[in-house]
Design a protein around this nucleic acid. Sequence first.
DNA 1: GAATTCATTACACATTTGTATAACAAAAAA
DNA 2: TTTTTTGTTATACAAATGTGTAATGAATTC
Lengths: 203, 203
Amino acid sequence: MNSGERILKFLRSYTDKHRRPPTVREIQRAVGFKSPRGVSYFLDKLEKTRRIVRRGRSRGIFLAGTEGLRREPETAACFPFFSAIPAGRADLAETEPDRQLAMEPTLFGLRTPDRAFVVRVRGRSMEGAGIRDGDLAVLEKKEPKAGDVVAALVDGEVTLKRLVTERRGWFLKSENPDFPDLTPRRDLEVQGVLVGLVRRWKD
Amino acid sequence: MNSGERILKFLRSYTDKHRRPPTVREIQRAVGFKSPRGVSYFLDKLEKTRRIVRRGRSRGIFLAGTEGLRREPETAACFPFFSAIPAGRADLAETEPDRQLAMEPTLFGLRTPDRAFVVRVRGRSMEGAGIRDGDLAVLEKKEPKAGDVVAALVDGEVTLKRLVTERRGWFLKSENPDFPDLTPRRDLEVQGVLVGLVRRWKD
DNA sequence: GAATTCATTACACATTTGTATAACAAAAAA
DNA sequence: TTTTTTGTTATACAAATGTGTAATGAATTC
């Protein structure tokens, strides 16, 4: 293995382990050069061949493109995923999720996934809002506002609808003319407010 | 928000974005100190209260404990994210991504994110297919089939369109009557095939 | 009100860090 | 063989970097 390859390999392992790039002299020691210039020499070549990217002064050596920083960031977190919202169970926190999904909370404007959960959308009643059958809906447990899309438990059934305010109170609006709106007879229990959507594409 | 909190917040966002900790002076500029000493002053406090860990000399400031080293589920992986596909650059692997996004490849039917990348959708030309302005499109570099939604480089411009076959060859179809279809004059370079969509919900 | 702590700044300085120059041997090309 | 390229080292140095000292005003405590 030549020096360039060894440098790349060390770059990979060091960055992975320490969560920041090494310095030229750390590379020097690891690869066995007696002068930092040897490292710079190869870094120049690796940069020309686009194997690495350099920015900033200190610790600015990154693996290029998709190979680079393919490391796990600290930002990912687990979201509980329910294939179906269990009807009649008001508190999802007490329900065992079917699995966990790892995603960055920031993707949906969340700092933590603490109050969030994911369910699969069933049916086409929200197609007008860009929500399709089979989508994964990311919901946050919080106080809903008028206009929010919410997962609600209405008279024993769970649905994803837009929460609309009216003279007489709330009702749940479909965003598809083929589906009726819902006016809760008695209770309206909001399970969560829609904050994101994940869709696997398959035509 | 006090200075200590602001420093932690910047630490979080900078490390997240640049994949390495910032320097004291970078923190200084971001938080608005006029001297680097102000930062050091708070770093000392944050270290004493175990909010951060310091090691090495340059760029050695890490968020401490569970926050910094929050473990990933084994299933998460990093996708390179490009805020815009650089036109004229056929190989995205050679381009430095703007940041990395952590998600499970399996969400999109992928085993690894090796050939995948993420870009933000611009414009409404694919609204008919349920793809909205601002969505994150997950694309995989692979041979496109007829009917696939692809990110393509047509005559120097990058667009997301449906690839359709015709007697005379390929063309790119918009899924919005307000937008024209594209018939590539010369070259048609497919950057990737749509495999998923991530949307942050904000009405 | 006085004393003390806290938050901040200006300045300084030893190290660290990246890279340049020059030199040299080995390998490859001519 | 001579020339050129490649890989490496010793030395040097400017810029970056972390932190120390002293000073200052504001807030807090006594």
